[in-house]
Write a protein that binds this DNA or RNA. Sequence first.
DNA 1: TTTTTTGTTCAGTTTTAACTGTATAAAAAA
DNA 2: TTTTTTATACAGTTAAAACTGAACAAAAAA
Lengths: 161, 161
Amino acid sequence: MNKPQTENINNKILLEFTKTIEMFGLTPLESRLFTYLYLADKPMTLDDMAEALGKSKTAMSTSIRTLADQNLVTRVWKKGVRKSLYRAHTQLFKAFMISYLNKWVEAVNQQKSAFIELEQMMKEIKRNHTNLKLKATEERLQEIIQFHQKMEDVFREVKKD
Amino acid sequence: MNKPQTENINNKILLEFTKTIEMFGLTPLESRLFTYLYLADKPMTLDDMAEALGKSKTAMSTSIRTLADQNLVTRVWKKGVRKSLYRAHTQLFKAFMISYLNKWVEAVNQQKSAFIELEQMMKEIKRNHTNLKLKATEERLQEIIQFHQKMEDVFREVKKD
DNA sequence: TTTTTTGTTCAGTTTTAACTGTATAAAAAA
DNA sequence: TTTTTTATACAGTTAAAACTGAACAAAAAA
């Protein structure tokens, strides 16, 4: 009689928390999958997940890999069970914060490198054509590199908790 | 003879910086548009932008609105010019940091509220059905709310520069 | 006022990302 | 080893987001 009511709540939690997870740059399915594992609170197989979310096993396989790569879920061993089991990290804040900051720092750093390389190219050109006016572009590049540096600093700072 | 070389550099800067801007959750076009305005370093009309990026004026209109809503570009008035002019904020770091953190804090806060509401619903149900075992779900909800709180705290902290 | 210019709305199209199912590979059991 | 079970690669499909163009609305000039 009241089972439906609690199931309804659980559904709402699943739905709502999926939205939160999506904010970290995960796809809807990845987010739903993580939430499912997190709420299940015990290791699940690919078949369990496919069944529960009504999606293909292939989708589970690729999604779980993305989650595992970001250390949001981990593979679990259980004697006697052949299928691979996965469970969500319970320390939500730590897991997502680390994963998210890592993504940012890495990406920003890579972009910064690209601009420093462009800066070198500019210096080359200037050496060969002393008459060229590149001051404006040079200044812009400086600003951009500084911008990346500042971003990197902020995220590294946050990373220290 | 060397004009192409410097134009090539400018193109690369445009391309590369667009990638950086995309990281802040803007669409490719919005990002490209911002970068164009930023590098142009002077107010531009919708027609200028459409022409320069080879896209429709409609796309410019909607994109510029998004950018303006996030305070990444501002409308500029110039006597004698009928068309509306826009220019990018030059303080990259400040502009993007504020816009980005605001988006996060707002979204996290809204999600948190949704969960607090669910918590209230749970309490209601418990009152009417004292026999129900909802402890596990309740604890999960607590964790989730805490998670949102922590995220909010972090972003608010960063916001203080 | 009417005419001209500029900006926006919205339905439809194109492009990109997400997802499926078959076929293959890898791993465990027989 | 062969057989059976489970996971992944990949081509193709479906779903979602980005983008366009015609028609409309708003604002300025005549």
